[in-house]
Design a protein around this nucleic acid. Sequence first.
DNA 1: CAACTAACTTAGCCTGGCTAATATTCCGGT
DNA 2: ACCGGAATATTAGCCAGGCTAAGTTAGTTG
Lengths: 140, 140
Amino acid sequence: MSDDPAELADQLSAVLRHLVLLLRRTVAGQPVTSQQYSVLGSLERGPRRMTSLAEEHAVQLPTMTVQINRLQDAGLVARGSDPGDARVRTVELTGEGRERLLAVRRARNAHLERELAALTEQERDALAIALPALAKLGLG
Amino acid sequence: MSDDPAELADQLSAVLRHLVLLLRRTVAGQPVTSQQYSVLGSLERGPRRMTSLAEEHAVQLPTMTVQINRLQDAGLVARGSDPGDARVRTVELTGEGRERLLAVRRARNAHLERELAALTEQERDALAIALPALAKLGLG
DNA sequence: CAACTAACTTAGCCTGGCTAATATTCCGGT
DNA sequence: ACCGGAATATTAGCCAGGCTAAGTTAGTTG
């Protein structure tokens, strides 16, 4: 248990690389991809504009356009217009989209919960304590 | 700070989604991609066979073939043959590949170290303690 | 030696990124 | 009133990186 940032960086980097793989395969075979699920989640509290979605997901606008196109083709979101500014397109969940979001969330959480349940209580505590620090990374 | 696995799952899932984004952009603009760096790292201790690399990186063989092709085109790895079994191809670092690996590792670690240095000592401790638990996730 | 199995590669498809180029629409200054 | 620049999106074309299916070559076994 060293305080050396270099060593910590090494270990953290290895663990995160592994978790990225895990997250990717966790959703394999589910009705929406990881990115699509993530975007649907952004729409849960109401309509959003394209730029806002692109920023939140740290993606260029054209990338978000393509994602939304696919979600729209799948009937999970609908495009609308801003009454005050004809340039902006709004995006919102359809009823089906909301259902799908909840279903996928249930499946994902059930999966993670199973893995967490396999840990000891001490390990879960350690994760809970470290979460805020983990969340802080990358904000600089 | 709840012990409820469901709540922990929710929060952890959100944080990890964010970190995935972070890792992706951290390597943007570097001379090798995240996957290539990862593969180069596997070769650090000597030649490996294709199947072994594919397994370690949780990827199908054809995917690894393509990765190695690119690394070979870039002059970072070289293919060889197993004297005992003509079916297997071995892969090893070239001198340039080893140099590149070390350079990228320095850059990546410097980046993560800067971020870790921005945390408090308590936060770094929390991360260090939670690392083993984090690493355990997804092994089931 | 024929048939099966193992190790790779090739081909073709998908998602998900990016930049550059193209509408549209809005806004500000003359 | 209008012209030019800024803002919002989309389209087109490229690349990385994943997958499956099919093909090739080499060992293994009955």
